[in-house]
C-alpha cells in the first residue's frame, strides 16, 4: 500500500505546488505554509476538477500563496483579490474560485470588497491567514492586531479596537464561517473542505504564527512559542455566537465552526430573473 506518488522522492504535495519555487519565501516557523498544506489537502479530498479551480491572492506574505500553488493562480493587487475573484467567477461560473490572502489584505485595504462580496453571497471560498500584523512590510499595526499588542507602528502597544473576523463575515452575509489555528492542521483541512463544498460566500480564518515580527514583539519569539500559546489557549466552541469570539492579546482563542446556513447565492438570484428578461 505504498503511495506511488512519493516513490520518486517528491513530497506528496509537490504535484499541487510549483515545486521549482520551493523552498518558499516564508520565515522559519511562519504558519502560512501549514495553511497552504491544509488547503491543498482539502482540495485533493474534495474531488473537484483541479483544472477548474482558481486561486486568487492579494498582496502580502499570505498573498504569495498563489505563486506556489500549481493551479490557475492569480496574484493581484493589495486588497483586490475578492473583486478580481468576483469577475473570474462571474466570467466562468464553472470555476471553483478560492481567495487565499491575509488579514491586512482582505480586511483593511480590501475591507470594503470583503463585506460586499459576503453581502452578495458570491460563490467564493475565502481562506484568511490571520497573523495579526503586516508581515511583508515589517510588522506594522493591522486591522486584527489585539489591543496592547506591540508592532512597529504601535511601539507603545496598540490602542485601536481590532476586527473580530468571524463576526464581520457573519454580519456581512457569509453562509459558512469557521476559525482554527494553524496548529489545528487537520481541522483546518476539514473546515476548508466544507467551505469548498459550500455554495456561496464561505470564510475560514486561520490564526497563524508570525515569529519574526508579531511574535518577536509580543514575547513569543519562536513559532513554537506561538503554537504552544494556541495549544494552551484555544477553545473549541462550535456554534458560538460570532460576536463572542473576540481575540485579545493574552486571552482565549475561540475556534470552531460558527456559521453554516443556506441562502441563495448571487448566481442563484441572478439566474432567477432569466424568465423576465
Amino acid at each position: 500500500m505504498i503511495d506511488e506518488q512519493v516513490l520518486d522522492g517528491l513530497h506528496p504535495m509537490d504535484k499541487l505546488l510549483r515545486a521549482d519555487r520551493i523552498p518558499h519565501i516564508w520565515c522559519p516557523g511562519c504558519g502560512i505554509g501549514t495553511v497552504v498544506y491544509s488547503f491543498l489537502s482539502a482540495l485533493i479530498k474534495s474531488g473537484l476538477d483541479l483544472d477548474k479551480v482558481a486561486v486568487v491572492s492579494g498582496i502580502g506574505c499570505t498573498g504569495r500563496a498563489a505563486g506556489y500553488i500549481n493551479l490557475d493562480s492569480f496574484h493581484t493587487t493589495h486588497g483586490r483579490a475578492l473583486p478580481f475573484a468576483t469577475g473570474l467567477k462571474l466570467g466562468n461560473p464553472e470555476l471553483k474560485v478560492v481567495v487565499f490572502s491575509g488579514d491586512g489584505d482582505l480586511i483593511s485595504i480590501g475591507g470594503n470588497h470583503f463585506i460586499h462580496a459576503a453581502r452578495r453571497n458570491m460563490d467564493i471560498a475565502v481562506i484568511c491567514v490571520n497573523n495579526f500584523t503586516y508581515g511583508m512590510t515589517g510588522g506594522q499595526l493591522g486591522p486584527t492586531t489585539p489591543i496592547r499588542a506591540k508592532t512597529t507602528t504601535s511601539p507603545y502597544g496598540n490602542t485601536e479596537h481590532p476586527f473580530n473576523l468571524p463576526y464581520l463575515a457573519a454580519a456581512s452575509g457569509a453562509v459558512y464561517v469557521a476559525r482554527w489555528t494553524s496548529l489545528d492542521a487537520r481541522r483546518t483541512e476539514r473546515a476548508i473542505g466544507e467551505a469548498l463544498a459550500k455554495k456561496g460566500f464561505s470564510f475560514v480564518e486561520v490564526i497563524a504564527p508570525c515569529p519574526t515580527l508579531y511574535g518577536n514583539m509580543n514575547k513569543m519569539k519562536t513559532g513554537l512559542d506561538q503554537m504552544r500559546f494556541y495549544e494552551e489557549n484555544s477553545v473549541i466552541r462550535h456554534g458560538a455566537e460570532p460576536k463572542d469570539v473576540d481575540i485579545t492579546l493574552n486571552g482565549q482563542i475561540i475556534v470552531g465552526k460558527f456559521v453554516d446556513i443556506e441562502k441563495p447565492t448571487y448566481l442563484d438570484l441572478r439566474d432567477n430573473i432569466g424568465s423576465i428578461v
Binding site: 486568487v56 483586490r80 469577475g87 462571474l90 466570467g91 466562468n92
Partner: peptide, 30 residues
C-alpha cells in the same frame, strides 16, 4: 441579461476594474 452576459454593479471603481480583469482571465470580453 438579454444576451447571456453579465452585468455586475461593484462596490466602487477599484472593484469594477478588478472584476473586469478577473472576467477577462475567465475568457470573457469585459
Amino acid at each position: 441579461p438579454q444576451i447571456s452576459g453579465t452585468y455586475v454593479q461593484m462596490e466602487d471603481e477599484i472593484a469594477s476594474m478588478n472584476a473586469v480583469l478577473g472576467a477577462s482571465w475567465a475568457g470573457v470580453k469585459a
